[in-house]
């Protein structure tokens, strides 16, 4: 128990997606290397369904704090409950996804426990019984490997999609341990007044396929063409800073140093030169396709496949081919 691996299961008012459980995969590998167990922990109001799913995805035990206070994610209430659980059971490692919720709770929990934390890990391994975390620094020009010797647990956030999804088996058995922990309403710092869903859901961090545009797209209408390709592929639309700063597309689409860091399976860069600030946000994508008029554009050095050409000609052709091959 003392060297168990704990995985925080994030949810939004009780709603989960398979991605909520993704870290149980790497958690299981780490636990095997440490000779321990992978456990899930969850905070919420009514978590039995989530606990059952966590077990199906491989958690041997689920630790939970429940109560009406925890219906909606509030960083102070959730991090106090998480600190209570982690301090009581002192696992070796606690993994959180590097999403807004995962980062918020991991940071506040580490603050309460008085430890530093490693964020946005892209590699985790056990060497000589020690957990080593690898992350990108300086826009991915360097990777640094970090140990967190003094902390127990070692808290880290993990870049989404960095590790394979765990397999799901509904026949798995596991124990659910519920702990009582309350935060008085008077001690709560904040409340959520409302959530305004974005008109077009831009979830770049979770997207498997991103079609992205840069300065070379040249005009706002160019992004409509990229959106058509993204729609055929079931992907999301990204953008470089140059395109966002030109006002062609809103900031929530921006990928790069001052935007989002993404790791899709396919990243199609259209009219993006490949400045290091942009590469910082997407260079760990599995497959990068670059479409650019300039054969010397640095993006081609990072690309898996490159096409030297005008996106206004290449993209419609790709849409046509995909539509016929995918029967869409």
């Amino acid at each position: 128990m003392a060297n168990d691996v704990w995985v925080y299961i994030e949810h939004k008012e009780g709603a989960v997606t398979p991605m909520s459980f993704e870290l149980l995969g790497i958690g299981k590998t780490l636990a095997a290397d440490l000779g321990s167990n992978v456990c899930a922990f969850v905070i919420g109001d009514g978590i039995d369904g989530i606990a059952k799913e966590a077990i199906a995805y491989g958690a041997s035990k689920v630790f939970a704090v429940e109560g009406a206070t925890y219906k909606t994610f509030l960083p102070d209430a959730y991090s106090k409950a998480a600190s209570f659980l982690l301090d009581k059971y002192k696992p070796e490692v606690a993994l959180f996804r590097a999403t807004s919720q995962g980062t918020d709770i991991a940071a506040a929990t580490a603050g309460q426990l008085g430890f530093g934390l490693c964020t946005d890990s892209i590699g985790i391994k056990v060497e000589g019984g020690q957990v080593k975390l690898t992350r990108a620094a300086f826009g991915g020009n360097y990777t640094v490997t970090v140990v967190n010797e003094k902390a127990k647990p070692q808290i880290t956030t993990v870049r989404p999609k960095s590790f394979a999804m765990p397999e799901k088996n509904d026949a798995n058995q596991g124990e659910v341990v519920k702990e009582a922990f309350t935060v008085a309403d008077a001690d709560l710092h904040s409340k959520v007044l409302e959530f305004v869903k974005a008109a077009t859901t831009v979830n770049l961090v979770e997207a498997d396929i991103i079609v992205s545009g840069g300065r070379g797209v040249g005009k706002p209408e160019g992004f409509e063409l990229l959106k058509q390709l993204a729609d055929v592929l079931g992907g999301a639309v990204g953008a470089s800073r140059a395109a966002v700063d030109s006002g062609w597309i809103p900031y929530e689409h921006q990928v790069g140093q001052t935007g989002k860091t993404v790791k899709p399976k396919i990243y199609i860069a259209c009219g993006i030169s490949g400045a290091i600030q942009h590469l910082a946000g997407m260079r760990t994508s599995d497959c990068i396709v670059a479409i650019n008029k300039d054969p010397d554009a640095p993006i081609f050095k990072a690309a898996t496949f490159g096409i030297v050409g005008d996106y206004t000609q290449v993209v419609p052709k790709l849409i046509e081919k995909f539509k016929s091959k995918l029967n869409k």
Binding site: L117, E149, K150, F300, K301, F305, G309, K317
Partner: peptide, 23 residues
């Protein structure tokens, strides 16, 4: 509590394949 034990330059991505020919 966190210490950097190794600094590395990530391996360059494999040389990409430029597709040539008719569109």
């Amino acid at each position: 509590s966190t210490k950097v034990v190794e600094i590395a330059v990530p391996p360059p991505r494999g040389a990409g394949e430029i597709l040539k020919g008719e569109l």
